[in-house]
Design a protein around this nucleic acid. Structure first.
Lengths: 214, 214
DNA sequence: GCCAGAATTTAGGCTCACCGAAACCCTGCT
DNA sequence: AGCAGGGTTTCGGTGAGCCTAAATTCTGGC
């Protein structure tokens, strides 16, 4: 009733992260695309997760985590993000290179090793992309944020997070020295002015990946 | 023809380590016991490994690695031992606590991360138990060694390795400050005298786990 | 040289996580 | 209201890796 294998954890994690920065529930087909599996595989796993009380699902409807499911999901996300932070902070990885490694290690590391890493890093609150690292009890501290692509011209603030979905975007932004904490003003659509007065043109893909202070 | 999953890697690793400090080939049933699986499971996997050219096996006979199999096996052993060394050297583990964690991580870590760890550690030649860490090309440097239980009284030398099979033995020896590098003289069966003149009584289990300079 | 008992293999089955194809349900458009 | 098309589920099937029970083969002791 309770074990949650690596595959199930991936489903829970993906359902969780889908609603982390926007509020619509995920559909089975969207989940299939994100996980790279066939829709029928999703149906099957959804049945198991619902039977275990980790998600709720009415046939032909969207998916939602239960409290138990959210706890399990945040535990996986916590692992993933602590590992990413560690890879960048101690192991010489760049922020566009950590995702795949963390994807695998998050299912392999013991709680003990995870806490040893957490301690070495000084209990970080965010990963290299600016995503909040859930606490061990599942608590997540997430500031209000707007997508740069949807911010109004004139908006001033700082970068909160950059989605790690597209490594090319991450490399582009790293080259432009833009990352979590960068302060800016939106001078025109896709044009930001940094604190030192330099302006940067961001691609539409980047603008759709950058979340800034509301 | 070539993938080698985690399970297959465990079979290869176990076949390899069985002949590392003694020279008789392993039998299918011994392999089953070590891996904790049924004999029939061994038969099945053996068939696959033989078909992939990683081991040789005549029906009802013992198992032996081919050159390709040995290369694959030493790669896994290399991972395992580097991870153990890292857990002890940087993550605050004791030498009796690293085995299980390494057992899992050895199948999850990427080559890149492994080399990052190797570099941080300064390219160690031995793990915390004194086992040699194979080079990336499969080369292993193993000094001639005798089991303490089989050494003649009067034998003087130093501890080369302690088998990590039995954590209780490792804890016992750690309490007695005995480990790889410890110099001693065998004063009587199960009694050793250390460099500082102190003598120690070792249990039969420990004497059967300690390998010393020949 | 034979044969009992141990080791090994075969045979048949199980679970997990996946697949493609076919059936089914729902919605939006006419 | 009816229906086409897309989303979802069902159905039958696959490969890994494991199991137990039932052959089969080998071997040591007489």
């Amino acid at each position: 009733m309770n074990h949650t294998t690596g595959a199930a954890e991936d489903y829970l994690k993906t359902i969780y992260t889908h609603t982390e920065w926007q509020s619509d529930l995920i559909s089975p087909s969207a989940l299939a695309v994100r996980l790279g599996v066939a829709p029928s595989s999703v149906t099957e796993m959804v049945k198991k997760l619902a039977a275990s009380g980790l998600i709720t699902h009415v046939p032909y409807g969207p998916l939602a985590l239960t409290d138990a499911g959210r706890l399990r999901a945040t535990a996986v996300v916590r692992r993933h993000r602590l590992i990413e932070t560690w890879l960048v902070g101690e192991m010489g990885y760049d922020w566009d290179q950590v995702h795949d490694e963390a994807e695998i290690l998050e299912h392999a590391i013991s709680d003990r090793l995870l806490e040893a890493i957490n301690t070495r890093l000084g209990f970080p609150a965010h990963d290299p992309h600016g995503d909040p690292i859930p606490a061990a009890d599942g608590t997540v501290l997430r500031p209000p944020a707007v997508l740069l692509a949807e911010a109004t011209v004139g908006h001033a603030g700082s970068v909160l997070r950059v989605s790690d979905r597209d490594p090319a975007v991450l490399r582009e932004l790293a080259a432009d020295l833009i990352g979590p904490g960068t302060e800016f003003t939106l001078a025109a659509a896709l044009t930001i002015v940094l604190a030192d007065g330099q302006s940067r043109l961001v691609t539409p893909a980047a603008a759709a990946s950058i979340w800034v202070t509301a």
